[in-house]
Design a protein around this nucleic acid. Structure first.
Length: 559
DNA sequence: ATTCCATGATGCC
DNA sequence: TGGCATCCCTGGAA
């Protein structure tokens, strides 16, 4: 198990090692890279070519030959059967053919040959994009099939990292929220319970509140009546109400007043939204119940209501943007449910949208509120085109790699709030692709009206999965959280010089005080990993060890 | 340096 | 029904 992990981590480094540019030699990372060994996979390959000699010699050299001499017999790591291999081969993952497809979950083929696979190779257009017909064919097809949606204005995709805060949070980012009026303020919650406030226009202005929650923040909402006040729902079972100016915070709801009574009793709050018409903050817990707080008095209202299967986690709540009586919920009982706010009682939902697995998120469309978008752990994004129509089945299912996995914040496909056609959605991708020798996990922009991939956004600097994505309500900006870091993406300005664009790219690296001692031993001087943040532009990006590696590879891929 | 663990849902028995 | 191994992850602790 450790093997696979190490292997994955070393793979991108091979590329970097070949790139002997000394640009970053001032950082402490270069010496290790210079004599970096072959990756384990390459070593393994050689061992096989030479009939396992390497392995035997190793044993001899140790002097104490074990009784069981391990010959390297190629056995699949996944199913333990001989004859094939599974796992990462460089930056490409080879599926075990004995398992169902990792992408669409159907048996009989692997991800490589999956009909839903988006990218076949780097630089090649996705099959869904390949324009096999000419424009006349297209027009003709439109006449024959009126259901093909009208041509929409071209989407503006924020596909370039504009700025970032590397290792901003001390645990992984769990949620993001833009300020309702100040365009450059981004709030972020993390697994540790901290809430960050970042002015990404000034880049270096950031603030972290650590006193609000004790564990994972699951949702942040601004008060509809006061821009400085935010509500936050957390797995510590509380709703926090925090003044961003002063940092003072109060607890509006605490589901665990008696403290820790064992894991079976600990209540956590996940989904949260605000119904400003009704003046109520809604939050749902991990036992299937909905809680409400009057947001004018900030007092709880009424008893909790069972809205999902008893004992199952309710992960998402969404109030309809047009019709205040409508509430959407989703949860681990494999359902998304539509509720009438006037009739909130167990089993009284207006509709139950069935899914095959856990529903990570369910959102009404942002303008009309008549469509529903859900993300499900069966690797499918579902769209219901009209809440007034038949909701037995979704209008479309889009196969998309958004498996839940340990240590990952659940993927949630989100609408672009600016797209009045209510088509563009953004969602991070779990499965990786091989981009010039580096495994990257892009952020996908999908046209929800036809399921087509509009854009896949990535940066060689970001090798971690990016499950948390939020599109700006007014600007062409995407904010994303990947592991502990935050990124701001803006559209590539094609009229600008590339060089100038590069110079605009700013990366802040904020060191972690806890790690300091450990990491600094490696360096020859004390330059890296200080608690100060480093701001630099263009080529002089000064980063810590792990960032330095990927920065190098980024140069390689870009030139 | 390396291993282990947390944490969540699933699927198999 | 419940216990348990498994999973294309990640970071920190032991």
């Amino acid at each position: 198990m450790g093997l696979t992990r190490n292997k994955r981590k070393t793979d991108p480094e091979i590329v970097i090692a070949r790139d002997t540019d000394s640009e970053l030699s001032s950082s402490s990372s270069s010496e290790e890279e210079d004599n970096y060994p072959l990756s384990e996979s390459e070593e393994e390959d050689e061992a096989v070519k030479s009939g396992g000699k390497i392995e035997l010699e190793k044993n001899k050299a140790k002097g104490n030959a074990p009784i069981t001499v391990k010959l390297i017999k190629k056995v699949c790591k996944v199913c333990k059967q001989p004859g094939h291999e599974a796992g990462f081969k460089g930056a490409t993952y080879i599926d075990c053919p004995m398992k169902p497809c990792f992408l669409c979950k159907m048996p009989g083929h692997t991800t490589m040959s999956c009909p839903h696979r988006v990218v076949t190779d780097h630089g090649i257009l996705p099959t869904s994009h390949r324009n096999k017909k000419n424009s006349i064919d297209f027009v003709f097809k439109r006449q024959l099939q009126p259901r093909i949606p009208p041509i929409k204005p071209k989407y503006v995709i924020p596909d370039q990292v504009h700025c970032a805060v590397i290792r901003y949070h001390s645990r992984r980012v769990t949620c993001l929220e833009f300020h309702p009026t100040k365009n450059n303020i981004l709030l972020s919650g993390d697994k540790k319970g901290q809430i960050g406030v970042w002015d990404f226009a000034k880049v270096y202005e950031k603030n972290v509140y650590g006193n609000i929650h004790s564990v994972q923040v699951n949702n942040i909402r601004f008060s509809p009546t006061n821009d400085d006040m935010v509500y936050s729902a957390s797995s510590d079972g509380t709703i926090g109400y925090t003044d961003l100016e002063t940092g003072t915070s109060s607890t509006l709801l605490n589901l665990n007043p008696d403290g820790w009574q064992g894991p079976n009793n600990w209540k956590m709050l996940y989904g949260m939204d605000i119904n400003s018409e009704k003046g109520v903050v809604l939050a749902a817990d991990n036992f299937g119940f909905l809680h409400m707080i009057d947001h004018r008095t900030n007092n709880g209202t009424g008893e909790p209501i069972l809205i999902h299967k008893q004992g199952s986690k309710v992960v998402g709540l969404d109030c309809n943007p047009v019709q205040p009586e409508l509430l959407l919920s989703c949860g681990n009982d494999h359902f998304a449910r539509i509720w009438d706010m006037r009739k909130l009682q167990p089993k009284a939902s207006l509709n139950d949208l069935a899914h095959k697995r856990v529903v990570n998120s369910a959102y009404f469309s942002p303008s009309s509120g008549t469509k529903i978008l859900t993300t499900c752990q069966d690797n499918r994004i579902r769209i219901w085109d009209s809440i007034f129509g038949n909701l037995d089945l979704p209008s479309r299912e889009i196969v998309h790699s958004n498996d839940f996995n340990r240590h990952l914040t659940p993927f949630k496909a989100e609408w672009d709030p600016k797209d009045t056609s209510e088509s563009l959605i953004v969602v991070g991708r779990y499965i990786s692709e091989n981009y010039n020798g580096t495994a990257l996990h892009p952020i996908d922009f999908i046209d929800a009206s036809n399921g087509q991939l509009v854009a896949e956004v990535m940066d060689p600097n970001i090798t971690t999965i990016t499950p948390v994505n939020k599109l700006h309500p007014r600007d062409d900006v995407l904010a994303s959280g990947s592991s502990r870091s935050l990124f701001i993406w803006r559209p590539q300005d094609k009229t600008e010089m590339v060089e100038e664009k590069k110079d605009k790219k700013i990366i802040i690296c904020s060191g972690d005080s806890k790690k300091k001692g450990k990491k600094q031993k490696r360096g020859s001087d004390d330059e890296d990993d200080e608690d100060d943040m480093f701001i630099s532009k263009g080529k002089n990006i000064k980063v810590n060890k792990s960032q330095a590696k990927t920065t190098k590879s980024s140069r390689k891929t870009k030139t």
